[in-house]
Design a binder for these strands. Structure first.
Lengths: 214, 214
DNA sequence: AGCCCAACATAGTGACCACTATGTTCGTCT
DNA sequence: AGACGAACATAGTGGTCACTATGTTGGGCT
């Protein structure tokens, strides 16, 4: 009776099938773009049939929307805002994280760019539903950044008079823009250069000396 | 014999035909993206036949390359670096131009984003020829920016110790990133916010008080 | 045990795509 | 004046696309 159980586990598991599709789609869309990725590419990579695909997602666009809601948002928050909780001084955390996210990137990830930025530039102007969902991710990123700036302010790490909303919008713009520029230039020295400028900008609003352990 | 001449003017003019194709293609690619724009879309908008198109451009990709080399590059320089020549203080010029380029944008242009950024995010990772050509535009933009920073430094407008190359890379990244973020958010108040942060960053490297006439 | 429906699998289908094969026309050059 | 080639125009062509019509199968529920 062993075989039945172990085989059956892989057979009818709709939630797992859906996740396999989403996972395969995320990789392909990240690397090739949404329009350039065909449903066939996705089902081949996921190891399922087109029938399974269209059973779970009525249209290709619906898959794209699910990608943003269920995969992309967590991905971005996991990378950019969640790690800030580990730092006593959020300003120092943002500087350190900008650097770390850059150092951790593989060559292929640099070539592929920022998954949020990719989709924003490709889909925002041609599909209002995509834009709304991507806008939600971008705003959440900015709001979380602002929340950590507020925390920094409350604990005396910020100079008085800094407009936290404006600063958080600029911070996210710099982070997104850096990934976008790097995707084209493919030159890590430029990334180090952008990091140092970013650090200078962050330090200009800091009330304390920033010491970074390397 | 009047008819012959006036009609003939529009008939066999290869240079004009080529330009009509490039102009129509630029608009469509700018708004819809390169992959989403079909050759048929382009020839319809240009008012020429597919035969004419493929006579002037062997493949659709070749048209894309010509777009970058012959249209996009001039477009970007005309908008971002050429106007800096009119300012005595280039730092002030960059601040003023960031603002002016934003104010001059129509709603549709905001929705369409930065034409260079659009193509970079869409094509850089999937076509090396595109990447090289786009890279040329981006580097030219950065180098021109650096040239104006050098001019500013020579005339005493910059604080000592500013790394001009790093600063120019960050400036262009902020300009590109702002257009990219705006394309999604469609909210001019965010643009004003980004402008003020950009201005603060520029002022942090300035040796003089910046006075902007509104 | 048998029924039923979600969860797939298979095999198309029309639309659109970049591109081509081939024909025609006009200006130029001798 | 006649030839000739660049500058088009017309009508396809194979391939790919998102999507669908129609089966089949397995597990849960009575």
């Amino acid at each position: 009776m062993v075989s039945k159980g172990s085989l059956a586990a892989a057979m009818r598991d709709p939630e797992k099938t859906r996740m396999r599709i989403l996972g395969a789609a995320y990789d392909l869309v990240y690397k090739e773009g949404f329009r350039s990725t065909s449903v066939n590419d996705i089902v081949m990579k996921a190891g399922v049939t087109q029938g399974a695909f269209f059973h779970h997602f009525p249209t290709k666009n619906d898959l794209g929307y699910a990608l943003v809601d269920e995969v992309l948002k967590d991905m971005m928050m996991e990378r950019w805002t969640k790690p800030l909780a580990a730092y006593k001084n959020p300003v120092q955390g943002m500087i350190a994280r900008f650097r770390k996210n850059m150092d951790d990137l593989s060559d292929e990830e640099i070539r592929s760019g920022c998954p949020l930025n990719n989709l924003m530039q490709e889909m925002s102007s041609i599909d209002p539903v995509f834009r709304e969902k991507l806008r939600g991710v971008l705003l959440a990123w900015m709001e979380e950044t602002e929340r950590y700036l507020k925390k920094a302010e409350a604990e005396g790490y910020l100079r008085p008079g800094v407009d936290l909303k404006k600063a958080s919008q600029f911070i996210v713009t710099a982070e997104v823009g850096s990934s976008g520029v790097m995707k084209n230039l493919l030159d890590r020295t430029v990334y180090y250069s952008l990091y140092e400028s970013f650090r200078r900008y962050m330090e200009s609003m800091s009330a304390v000396e920033i010491l970074l352990e390397v």
